[in-house]
């Protein structure tokens, strides 16, 4: 493949992708998506949240899990960074601490795919991060 060096090259990619994307147009509906938010404040970044986020994006893609991975601020669990919040469709959000790549792997394989509970859950009585 040619190297992508200009916006014109991006335009070609867009045309390629658009033809494929039609097939799964309805997959963007929020209640079928797994939502993952990665705590990306000073504490998170310093503990490797960026690597965790990249890993989550790549692995969910690789396994064809319909997931949106976004970043959020500090959840207040700086001792347990990197922390992530996973919301399965129709379920309450769940916060996990100390999520390095190994832990992320386990969360994807066991919690996201099979719905089993795994170690490392931070028990919290909150709804979402946004209000904080």
């Amino acid at each position: 493949m040619n190297k992508i060096t200009s916006l014109a090259d991006l335009k070609k990619i867009k045309d390629q992708v658009q033809s494929k994307i039609k097939l799964r147009e309805n997959s963007d509906v929020a209640d079928t998506l797994v939502q993952i938010r990665v705590g990306m404040a000073t504490c998170g970044i310093a503990s490797g949240a960026k690597e965790t986020m990249n890993f989550l994006i790549e692995e969910t893609e690789h396994l064809a899990i319909d997931a949106v991975v976004t970043q959020t601020g500090c959840m207040g669990y700086c001792y347990a960074e990197p922390t992530i919040e996973v919301t399965l469709p129709g379920k309450e959000p769940m916060v996990f601490g100390h999520v390095d790549k190994v832990k992320a792997r386990e969360i994807i394989d066991r919690y996201i795919i099979k719905g089993e509970l795994v170690d490392g859950i931070i028990p919290a009585s909150y709804k979402t991060i946004d209000e904080k």
Binding site: K3, I4, T5, S6, L7, D9, L10, I13, K14, Q16, V17, I57, E61
Partner: peptide
């Protein structure tokens, strides 16, 4: 994924 990859490469 492909779009992200392309932007990354650019």
């Amino acid at each position: 994924p492909e779009v992200r990859g392309a932007i990354n490469e650019l």
